[in-house]
């Protein structure tokens, strides 16, 4: 657990990775979590800490396209990877279709779970062309939300998935 790592010998490592489309490089402490590097060193406050032990999903980011809990990942593990956070979703202020679907389904209440939810949903939509409700529920089941009761979030992801499908069909 990152909270009790006082025994470890600080060891500095230089890492570089692609973050939301840009290459970044920095020196990190080997015992630092990816979450604290993103939040405290790189200033990306989108990913949240809700538990620090992999139970809540508020810190979810994509690493090489997979949704992971950044609080469980050590910073050196980011080296050479492609990392996406909620900050990378929109085109400046223009929401992407998934964010737009969250907005129009009122899937955001307090919003603390939202960045993590979006990233888990994104990983699902990237991996699966037309996920059914079951797959959506499964993909989101590691992301806790205390406010919404999930249904408006699930509906938003369904709508985004449907839109992606019709988008793809239209292109074909």
């Amino acid at each position: 657990m990152p909270n009790d790592r006082d025994r470890e010998i600080p060891e500095s490592v230089t890492i570089s990775f692609e973050l939301n489309g840009k290459l970044v490089g920095l020196q990190v402490n080997a015992a630092e979590t990816a979450l604290s590097v993103l939040r405290d060193r790189l200033g990306l406050k989108g990913p949240k800490e809700g538990c620090g032990i992999g139970e809540c999903g508020a810190c979810t980011v994509l690493v090489d396209g997979l949704a992971v809990d950044a609080c469980l990942l050590f910073a050196p593990q980011l080296d050479g990877r492609t990392v996406e956070t909620v900050e990378g979703l929109a085109d400046r202020e223009t929401l992407n279709p998934l964010q737009q679907a969250f907005l129009s389904h009122d899937a955001v209440q307090c919003g603390y779970c939202t960045p993590g939810m979006l990233m888990s949903a994104k990983a699902l939509l990237q991996g699966e062309a037309a996920p059914g409700r079951k797959a959506i529920v499964e993909a989101l089941s590691g992301n806790l939300c205390r406010c919404t009761g999930y249904l408006q979030i699930i509906e938003a992801v369904e709508a985004a998935a449907a839109q992606e499908c019709t988008g793809r069909d239209a292109k074909e």
């Binding site: 909620v86 929109a90 202020e93 907005l103 955001v108 919003g111």
Partner: peptide, 21 residues
């Protein structure tokens, strides 16, 4: 109606207390 505050939360820009640097 569009809920006040949702947009900034979706962008990851809402400042919760721990986010204020």
């Amino acid at each position: 109606v569009e809920r006040i505050g949702s947009r900034e939360r979706l962008l990851g820009k809402a400042s919760f207390a721990a986010d204020i640097d």
